[in-house]
Design a protein around this nucleic acid. Sequence first.
DNA 1: GCCAACGTTGGC
DNA 2: GCCAACGTTGGC
Length: 139
Amino acid sequence: MAYWLFKSEPSTWSWDDQVAKGDTGEEWDGVRNYQARNHMREMKTGDRGFFYHSQKDKQIVGVVEVIAEAHPDSTTDDARWECVDIKAVAPFPKPVSLADIKSDERLADMVLVNNTRLSVQAVRESEWKLICKLGGYRD
DNA sequence: GCCAACGTTGGC
DNA sequence: GCCAACGTTGGC
């Protein structure tokens, strides 16, 4: 199983919006970046991801699950762009902020720290476990 | 609101 | 194929 991180501006698409979709989930559309798209192509049903609020929030607020593998992005006719569907699994009892992550040397290699602009990122298993712990979330 | 970092575009 | 110009993102 692989782990990922999905980043969104809460004013555009927030954790609450995601939760409101329930188990039906929603496609993670609108990605127009090759690196991010390539990550989505690698995703398998059942993979887990963090849901990160950028901009004002700057924290990981919950866990999502991939429920459909890469398919054409319905918001464009451009065949280059694909996306997966995800659903909310559970919120973090204690959201983990960017500042928390930056202050922990064990997370210094996270993409979130080193390539802040990438909207869909890969997360290492060690990072996943540590952040779940920090967030008070039991997998 | 500013600015750094990065990706994309388009002229040559 | 290179590189300058431009647009966007996101942290501060």
